[in-house]
Amino acid sequence: MPDWKLSARAPLDGHERNIGTVAVAEVTDLALVSAAVPRGGDEAFAAALAGGFGATRPVTGDSTLGNRHAARVLGMQPDQVFILFAPPDPDRPAGTVAAALASAAYVTDQSDSWVILRMTGAGVRTALERICPLDLDDRVFPLHRVARTAMEHLSVIVLRDGADSFLLMSPRSSARSFRHAVELSLEHVSE
């Protein structure tokens, strides 16, 4: 046995910061796995999703909650969902999904490719409206709504998981730039 071991490191080392009325916190305990539906496999996929995660398949732009692994299924595009969940084995999240879906989808582990920030607080929409091109009004972007967009030229998935709470996912490689963009916007509206 080697006398060293590798340990996982979060993209922003578990960053947390409060700015004005908004709390920004990196989410490090969730795995993200994409599942692409084979052509003609819609029924099998729906059955596998119900059996494996206790979730229904969301339409594109919406998300559903499952009753296993604290799963949330994000409808990303017509033939693809992302599954955000608490992995029983953090080193093998795709294995969990593949086993749960029993070959009804093409599964890719995306966990370590993304940074996830949760923004909560009364001023969160005011801060996001500066950099987010989506309309986040309650009537347009209600609870559980999800969308991919771009902020400051960075690709971002926006998920509303509370009245004043949003999950923002962006590529890990630009995690620090993304944090800077989000926090600068917050600083500008909280002065």
Partner: peptide, 11 residues
């Protein structure tokens, strides 16, 4: 058609 009005910068 699926997502509603979106900014042209996304396309």
């Amino acid at each position: 058609p699926l997502l509603g009005p979106r900014d042209a910068a996304e396309f």
